[in-house]
Every structure is written in structure tokens, then in C-alpha cells.
Design a protein around this nucleic acid. Sequence first.
DNA 1: TGTATGACCCTGA
DNA 2: CTCAGGGCCATAC
Length: 109
Amino acid sequence: MRTEALELIWRTVVAIPRGQIATYGGVARRAGLPGRARMVGHALKVAPATLELPWHRVLGAGGRIAFAQGSRQFAEQRRRLRAEGVEIVRGRVVRSVEPDLDELLWKPK
DNA sequence: TGTATGACCCTGA
DNA sequence: CTCAGGGCCATAC
């Protein structure tokens, strides 16, 4: 049986609007699971492809891509973000406004 | 049953 | 900027 936490996280990720981004910790909080950023990463990893989650909109603290630079996934995430107008420089999202630390849901550009 | 390992985060030095 | 240390917890072995 799938844990309830997984469902909560998936639902939260699906709600991230196109062109906007969130952090692992932020998703955890919005899902009602404060402190469990780690589980968010796990939830994305095991998510069925059929859900078509906008996983690329989830970044590490500070807007950093969690994958290793040079890795296949890093490139894929960067590609998808750029396609939505989110610029990445040195593995990090370029933001023109300070992140809202309470929401952790940013609006780059 | 125990240990190790993550698509993590935060604080402090 | 880096590094260490503590928190978190599902999975894998």
C-alpha cells in the first residue's frame, strides 16, 4: 500500500504552476510534512511516469538543481526549465527577486 | 534487527 | 564560499 505521504507530495508537486518553481523543503511544508524534504526527493524518484509530474520545477534550497552537474538528469531538468523561461546558471536558478522564504515558491523573471 | 544511503535542509564555524 | 553536525525517514541489503 502506498503511504499517504506520497500522495500528498505528488498532489503538491502537480500544483506548481508552469514557469514557477518550488524547493524540496517547501513542497514538504505545503504538503503538511514539515521537515521531510528528504521524502519529497524520494517521492519524486518513485513516482509513476504516468502521473507526469512537473518534477523539474522542484529544486534544492537556494534554487539549486539537486542532480550532479554533467549528469543526464541535470541536463534534462535544465532543458525543461529553460523551456518554461526559467534560466539556470552554474546549476542555479537565476532570480530577479528575493525568494519568499515562507512560501518557497518563486517567480523567476 | 541493524546499518547504509539518498533527487534534502538548516545552523554555525 | 566550504565543512561539519544534527534532523528526517523510506528503502535496500
